[in-house]
């Protein structure tokens, strides 16, 4: 693969794309190999791999849910959709659950502005949920197979803990 890019350092991003396609993510051994093959410093390779949001440095979660936060989706209630997803998955945006089952991601525009708001669940696009009706949204999400709401830990910034039993 590295040879296909002429072993040239400027092919780094292309090579990383292909490694990720093969392995699902960019492991440290893989990055080491890329650095060796392209004759690049390790920190340079890591700097590039960690800069771009589409490169994953951890194994991907079993299920991935990406909510579009593009402007068209935002204007049509993507914010409420995102809140619903965060509640259901117990995750913040761009976070993966500890057990590696779910990942909640944000994307900037999926180009489906005509069907806004939209989300992608395990590679399948779902469009136009009833984002402004909380109960209908909830059943819409249930129909997609999302887990029931997980209790979020208390938000940071609440009054001090002293005095709570």
């Amino acid at each position: 693969m590295i040879r296909r890019h002429g072993g040239q350092s400027h092919g780094l991003i292309e090579v990383l794309h292909q490694v990720q396609e093969l392995d699902g993510f960019l492991s440290k051994p893989a990055l080491l190999q890329v650095a060796r093959g392209l004759r690049l410093p390790l920190s340079r390779v890591y700097g590039v791999a960690s800069f771009y949001h589409l490169f994953r440095l951890q194994p991907p979660a079993e299920h991935r849910c990406a909510v579009c936060l593009g402007t068209a989706c935002f204007v049509r209630g993507a914010g409420r959709l995102a809140v619903g997803l965060r509640r259901r998955l117990g995750l913040d945006l761009d976070q993966t659950s500890g057990d590696g089952r779910w990942a909640l991601e944000r994307v900037s525009c999926l180009g489906a502005c005509g069907q806004a708001p939209v989300l992608v669940l395990d590679g399948v696009l779902f469009t136009a949920p009833p984002a402004d009706q909380p109960q209908e949204l909830d059943s819409w999400l249930t129909a997609l197979g999302l887990p029931a709401a997980v209790a979020l830990p208390a938000a940071v910034g609440l009054p001090a803990a002293v005095g709570t039993p």
Binding site: S9, H10, G11, L12, I13, E14, L16, H17, R44, G47, V48, F51, Y52, H53, L54, F55, S108
Partner: peptide, 26 residues
């Protein structure tokens, strides 16, 4: 064809050039 990897800033021309050269898109 050079494919980006998820960085809006690469629309800025000098960042884009860095990215084509296989560098961080700064």
């Amino acid at each position: 064809v050079r494919v980006g990897a998820g960085a809006y800033v690469c629309g800025e021309e000098t960042a884009l050039l860095h990215s084509i050269q296989g560098q961080r898109g700064t």
